[in-house]
């Protein structure tokens, strides 16, 4: 039934069998001269008399893929369904408590920035950190979010507002949706236009959070100023879903136009 086998030629690098007459190993390409010394008798063990059948396994091969696909479809329906239902139930819930208009109180300690290009001045809480500033505007990190005030010459208020939203990096801001208009939006004593948006902010490692941002634009004497304010969304507690809305209001109220 079985017999000892004469010593064969084997590749000295990878161990593959080298056919008679071959100059190189068919698997790794090593020269046949590099064949290993066969120091002991090799032996051919017999194959099992019956080929293995599917009965040896707990699950039939087709069942493995079948069960997995069923699980995935169930997960897609249940988990995906919950996510979609949560959206359908309203991802922009209205404020339910503590929602009355706030009295805007002056800040105890404040810092100020003055644009050398457009001569406007803006006061902000000293606790906020300056992320960048130049002659045209300033970017600030707030306690919970971010705000920028940038001036430009000319330009239509609506166009500047659209450009501000369109300029957001799409890799970070996804599902940007208008939530509503800000009635009576002003920058300083100048009437303007304002809108509140919701979006998903995608941070490092693809971590996403719901955010709200406000864009307020006003124009005066050929200078257009755009204010962009961003907060993690908390629509259940705060008007417009922005916890620092009051501070942003103060920023607009205390804004001083140049000239």
């Amino acid at each position: 039934m079985m017999a000892s086998e004469p010593a064969g030629r084997y590749c000295g690098r990878c161990g593959a069998v080298i056919p008679p007459g071959a100059s190189f190993c068919g698997r790794c390409g090593a020269p046949a001269a590099l064949q290993a010394a066969v120091a002991q008798p090799t032996y051919r063990y017999p194959s099992a008399p019956q080929p293995p059948t599917t009965g040896r396994f707990r699950l039939a091969p087709a069942l493995v893929a079948g069960i997995l696909v069923v699980i995935l479809i169930a997960a897609a329906v249940v988990v995906g369904g919950i996510a979609v239902a949560q959206f359908a139930a309203g991802s922009h819930p209205t404020c339910t408590s503590n929602c009355s208009p706030k009295f805007v109180t002056p800040l105890a300690e404040e810092a100020s920035y003055r644009s050398t290009s457009f001569k406007f001045q803006v006061n902000y809480p000293a606790a906020w950190n300056v992320r960048s500033q130049d002659a045209n505007g300033i970017e600030l990190g707030t306690k919970l979010g971010y705000v920028s005030i940038v001036g430009s010459t000319g330009g239509n208020v609506d166009q500047v507002m659209q450009a501000t939203v369109a300029g957001l990096p799409s890799s970070k801001f996804q599902n940007v949706t208008v939530v509503g208009s800000l009635k009576g939006a002003k920058i300083g004593n100048q009437d303007g236009s304002g809108e509140i948006y919701s979006a998903d902010f995608v941070g490092a490692s693809q971590t996403a959070i719901k955010v709200r941002f406000a864009v307020i634009v006003a124009s005066r004497h050929g200078v257009t100023v755009a204010l962009f304010a961003l907060n993690p969304a908390d629509a259940k507690t705060y008007p417009n879903g922005m916890a620092e809305g009051q501070a942003f209001d103060y920023l607009c109220t205390e804004f001083v136009w140049g000239g």
Partner: peptide, 13 residues
């Protein structure tokens, strides 16, 4: 950690 990390990226911390 996820929300905390994203918030810090927004604030610039």
């Amino acid at each position: 950690f996820g929300g905390s990390l994203a918030t810090r990226l927004i604030t610039g911390d």
